[in-house]
Design a binder for these strands. Structure first.
Lengths: 197, 197, 197, 197
DNA sequence: GATGAATGAGTCTTCATTCAT
DNA sequence: GATGAATGAAGACTCATTCAT
């Protein structure tokens, strides 16, 4: 049955997220992933060509899910509201699935190869959501026009990503227990002031 | 002669920066570093306990050099000027030593182990420079007081770091050829607006 | 229906001949053979105990077919004529079914295990046809008696086999395009002179 | 010291000859060869790029040694004497180093890849010695001219090789204990009759 | 101190074989 | 009988580290 097959593939990807997040890509053993997924080592190779392919596939698929979630943002509210929602969604997602976020933002960077082969497309689309918000904000006069949308969207991504990272990596971090909504608001205030016209 | 010894140690660290930046930590071979440094494989183990130790030592030492450069910032000018200078220095440094920057920001993240063992101290001190500027700005009334200095300094670091990263990783990036001064100014404008009271 | 079963078994053996000839026994995958035969991987194990068993069964069965073809030789003509016919038949067979010949002479040698378990019997019978011709030739006075029939039959087999091999393995060999009849005649002339009394 | 290095390389090759002869190329484990050579597994890879490379290097080097031994034949005596000596040398060599002979004639054939990459050159030179003897014999009028030297040299090689093989593979073969000189004489008688004019 | 040959633990990947459907 | 997804044992190869010179 097809659902059986998809089920097993999903279990492997989910196991890979956990193990990659815990050990890092290069230190993660395929056999650990297999064990975590409850399948035999060889089974992984029925679904993925290699350990590399597993990471890349994982990235593509999870990134697509996230993109769908985020692409809905553009459809409602003012640019300011969209930006707030983007930040809130991102931080909520991090709070919700910290391991996935770590793999998507940290482990994937490990090899320039992944950065070149797999990420530009998906990562670029993720950035494009942000750049789109800024574009529309500039067009509507809500945001200053003398800021480069590409530069600023990348800067904002870095800002949000770093905060996400500190959530993800710090177990007993000083703000780890803060409500992500509060953090999101504070960041949004800061950013909106920075780009408001 | 002590200078001889220091010379060889330095050559190994510089070679490691190059190789780690090019290949990534886990894919870099000790023998490649040895070759790039012009020493025998075994010689590296006279100066560093292990490959891990080489990365950590590299990080600590280079970070200290950078910190000295940045800690001078606090001594002159207004918080706004200090923040501008901080950003400018960071981007100038990236333009100057992109490989070192890549190792310090990307490779070092590879393993949570490094994040936990070696970086918090040095990295924390680097962030502290930024947090100090914000603190003093809030104290002097130049910056808004309802922003958490720790959160904002981390956010600003992420922002600057991401832009640095895009410089480092992109060979034909759209803004790769821009003058780093111009970028620094634009970022500073954005940030200062965001935190100005 | 029994013929159905036999049909599938035959298809597997024929596919195995092709794949073993192309890839060699150890590099041939059971799944390739299954695909070439148009059956599922598991089906092969309904007809053969193992990959080894497939090779051995293939050898035995094909060898028996060949032996029937060759054993008819002993029934007609003089020893000289029989020897000529033996050589001609062998080379004609090679020209006709080069892949089968390659499996029977090259792949089967790969493992001493096959040489010990499966081939001696069948191979011995094949040699026996040759030895029988020589025996009868010596008895009739046509062939010299101071040649050991076992040694000479083996020598002749090697001679013919090597020429066969060069046919099988060489695509653009210098004599690959020659008529096998011509080659057979030349070899027969040489051999008959060598053993004639 | 260079002799140390060469010594270790030689030990590996000699161990490989033993193991390849006993188990066959594909069933021989690199670790077995290492153990037989008294070195660590990894050491083999300091001298050879891969298991394949080990077999090919072994073949090339041993073949060259043999060729030097055989190429001396052409310098003395009549073609008949040369042919006798060639056969005698070949069989003596087989009796002396049966495992090496098995690797050189049986194992090397396993993969068409080896046949194409490594052997044609060396094998061709070996055959050329034989073809040269026949050529000179035909030129001097000692051998019949209506036999193709290339065909006949290949046929003779097959003949001699098969007898060698039966020596090599049969432990309790009926003629295994015979004096190789006697066998060589009998074969030489047969062959010389066959090609004498 | 310096060397670099040697080590051998560690792991990805393959593929013959099995068995639930 | 037939299937083919799943299994997991097996092995080539890498490379950080050591140590005799």
């Amino acid at each position: 049955m097809s659902s059986r097959r998809e089920d097993k593939r999903k279990r492997i990807i989910d196991a890979a997220v956990d193990v990659f997040a815990d050990k890092g890509f290069f230190q993660a053993k395929v056999s650990e992933i297999a064990e975590a997924a409850g399948v035999a080592d060889g089974t992984i190779y029925l679904y993925f060509k290699s350990k590399d392919d597993l990471l890349i596939s994982l990235f593509r698929e999870k990134m697509n899910e996230i993109l769908q979630r985020f692409s809905a943002i553009r459809d409602e509210g003012s640019p300011e509201q969209q930006l707030r929602r983007y930040i809130a969604e991102h931080l909520a997602f991090v709070a919700e699935k910290p391991k996935l976020m770590q793999v998507l933002t940290v482990e994937i960077r490990q090899s320039p190869r992944f950065m070149k082969e797999a990420t530009p497309q998906a990562f670029g689309r993720y950035l494009a959501v942000l750049a789109g918000i800024i574009d529309r904000g500039q067009a509507s006069g809500a945001f200053r026009k003398n800021l480069d949308p590409v530069l600023i969207s990348r800067a904002l991504f870095g800002l949000i990503d770093e905060i996400s990272l500190s959530f993800v990596l710090s177990n007993e971090n000083e703000w780890a227990r803060r409500d992500s909504t509060e953090v999101a608001n504070q960041l949004a205030d800061f950013i909106l002031r920075g780009i408001a016209s």
